[in-house]
């Protein structure tokens, strides 16, 4: 459970970091784009976490 939370923290940080790259490069500053990027980072972070855990169970489950 704790490791799951940690994975999510990492993945959310990764996705938010990518969002900040977009801003650093000068894109995505309009109000709707900002909202979309932020929601996108949140959802992508959760999706990636779940994906990683599914793969981990699929691969590691056999051992």
């Amino acid at each position: 459970m704790i490791v799951f939370g940690y994975t999510w923290a990492l993945m959310h940080h990764l996705c938010s970091g990518i969002r900040h790259f977009v801003w650093d490069l000068g894109y995505g500053f309009k109000a709707n784009e900002r909202e979309a990027l932020t929601w996108g980072a949140l959802i992508a972070g959760i999706s990636l976490t779940v994906l990683v855990w599914i793969i981990a169970y699929a691969v590691g489950g056999g051992r």
Binding site: H20, W23, D24, L25, G26, F29, A31, R34
Partner: peptide, 25 residues
């Protein structure tokens, strides 16, 4: 840290965060 509260609140629709990103660049 590009939190964007400034852009959200600006009644004139300005975006200081964008200007700041330009400065950092």
């Amino acid at each position: 840290h590009t939190i964007m509260n400034c852009a959200k609140a600006c009644p004139k629709g300005l975006n200081p965060s964008e200007a700041i990103a330009e400065l950092k660049f």
